[in-house]
Design a protein around this nucleic acid. Structure first.
Lengths: 129, 129
DNA sequence: CAGCATCCCAAACGATACTG
DNA sequence: CAGTATCGTTTGGGATGCTG
């Protein structure tokens, strides 16, 4: 698919496979899920309860994509009813710290962002008069 | 909006303002744009040409959001026709390195991801028979 | 418990035309 | 050049019901 397989990956090119990867890891649910899996393994419904606003359908899709991309490991235990545990793969571990930085940045700089938004909105409504 | 303003921010809660911030910075276009602005200031149409697959409409929306969030600075020069330059704000600088790690991760681990995808797909088609 | 299948709606996006 | 405005389509996602 990459028109220049011999060249270095370039996510600014539409066909580059790194673009597909970036599309997925630069995703809010992926970031939040990895933030939890970084702590310990989680079960499906535990993740669902923990992440407010995430629907069962989207969690299912996201976990499946992450499993396909090799970021998470899925293990089903033959209990009744079945128990499924999600954990980070070795590959996922290499990414987890990086995405967690985004969560930490949000927490650290939230006040500055909200202040910037209010200043921007005030400028706009003032300019519009 | 945050039901517990006295508590630490918690992006896993739907109402937490950090969630809104995370929604925006964990976005593929934002990551790619910041990756470029990190190098030097860019003009609107230069960004548009550089980022393959990004439409004018979405670039416009994304830059406006980033400006409102205080991540980028927009400066218009009174030339004819007008010249507009986008650059990182001080706040944006604090984030730029972190998001760039995601781009670098994509480039570094793209082979492992594609291999994982192929292995997954092979398992699936095999299991389906 | 851990999902999948279906229906349905709202938001996102591309394409196009137009403007200071 | 650097956008805005509108429109039609596509996609994502919620809600619900069902299954191993």
């Amino acid at each position: 698919m990459n028109p220049n397989p011999s060249m270095a990956p370039n996510p600014y090119s539409r066909q580059c496979p790194t673009r597909l990867v970036l599309d997925r890891i630069a995703d809010k649910w992926t970031v939040l899920i990895m933030g939890l899996l970084r702590q310990r393994p989680w079960r499906f419904n535990a993740l669902l309860r923990e992440i407010d606003g995430l629907s069962q359908k989207v969690l299912s899709q996201t976990l499946k994509r992450m499993e396909r991309d090799g970021l998470v490991h899925r293990e089903a235990f033959p209990t009744v009813p079945v128990t499924v545990e999600y954990s980070l793969s070795a590959l996922g571990e290499t990414l987890a710290g990086s995405v967690n930085v985004l969560i930490e940045w949000s927490e650290t700089h939230i006040k500055a962002v909200v202040a910037a938004q209010q200043a921007y909105d005030a400028r706009q409504s003032g300019a519009r008069q």
